[in-house]
């Protein structure tokens, strides 16, 4: 499976979280907001600048905005 960064995923694509390689503070915040490894995320809006907006399909489709810098530290893989 091809592993890529959340910040590189196109709109509408569905991916699975492989690893969260951010610092501890960001990681705890992500976990608290329900983003865990193995969760299935759909990218709602990934403009060329600004935060990535995702929908967590594993957690009732909750929508979370993730700053670009942090999205660059979240590894994901394609799911079909």
């Amino acid at each position: 499976m091809l592993v890529m960064l959340l910040s590189e995923v196109n709109n509408e694509k569905v991916v699975k979280v492989v690893a969260i390689d951010t610092g501890n503070i960001a990681k705890q915040r992500l976990l608290a907001l329900g983003i865990h490894p193995n969760d299935i995320l759909q990218v709602v809006s990934n403009p060329s600048f600004g935060p990535v907006l995702i929908k967590n399909l594993s957690k009732d489709n909750a929508r979370i905005a993730i700053g670009r810098g942090i999205a660059q530290k979240i590894k994901v893989e394609n799911v079909n």
């Binding site: 960001a26 992500l30 907001l33 979370i64 905005a65 993730i66 700053g67 942090i70 999205a71």
Partner: peptide
């Protein structure tokens, strides 16, 4: 500054 994580 570092980025944001926020629920919509």
């Amino acid at each position: 500054p570092i980025g944001l994580i926020m629920e919509i």
